[in-house]
């Protein structure tokens, strides 16, 4: 009986060893190959007076089907104090597109009323503020001397927040 058990164990170990090289298949399932966050011009500071916003597509592929993806929509904010901020426009609650309301100086979601602080991207009120993931992914911004604004990478995972950066 003992020997049978031994043989069974050997076969079990070998079976596990035969399938383990397939484990990296997880990379196949979670890759987001079509999103290459390379450096891209997204606007000029002179077109954005303080207290205004621009919606832009990033990264642009030229393929309308891909470029229409809400996950490629971003907000470029010029806050009243003149500083620049840029966040993913995808609400962390249920993936509606959020917008900046300059009269109240806050980012608002039209679907369920989540409200984000434009200085930090953190949800301060509404359903998104009650989640674990509540900070909008932020775009790294670079401003050239002539005022051209460039996006160069995203911190966090779009739709999942900065916290969910896997």
């Amino acid at each position: 009986m003992k020997r049978r058990k031994f043989l069974k164990t050997v076969m079990g170990i070998s079976g596990i060893l035969a399938v383990t090289p397939f484990v990296p298949i997880k990379d196949y399932l979670i890759t987001n190959v079509s999103f290459e966050f390379t450096r891209q011009k997204i606007g000029n500071i002179n077109e954005l007076p303080p207290g205004s916003r621009k919606i832009y597509t990033y990264p642009v592929t030229g393929n309308p089907e891909l470029d229409g993806d809400p996950f490629r929509k971003f907000l470029l904010l010029r806050l009243p104090d003149g500083s620049l901020k840029s966040y993913s426009a995808v609400c962390l609650h249920l993936w509606c597109l959020v917008d900046y309301k300059s009269e109240r100086n806050q980012i608002e979601c039209p679907c369920h009323g989540s409200i984000y602080d434009p200085n930090t991207g953190i949800a301060i009120r509404g359903p998104a503020s009650l989640q674990f993931n509540k900070t909008l992914p932020e775009v790294k911004i670079e401003v050239e001397e002539n005022g051209d604004i460039y996006a160069n990478g995203v911190v966090g995972v779009i739709g999942y927040g900065k916290e969910g950066a896997v």
Partner: peptide, 17 residues
């Protein structure tokens, strides 16, 4: 090769029985 080695082991386990 790993899969074929499994085949060898599975066969000899059967011989063991």
């Amino acid at each position: 090769i790993s899969l074929i080695t499994f085949a060898v082991i599975a066969h000899f386990v059967r011989v063991g029985y």
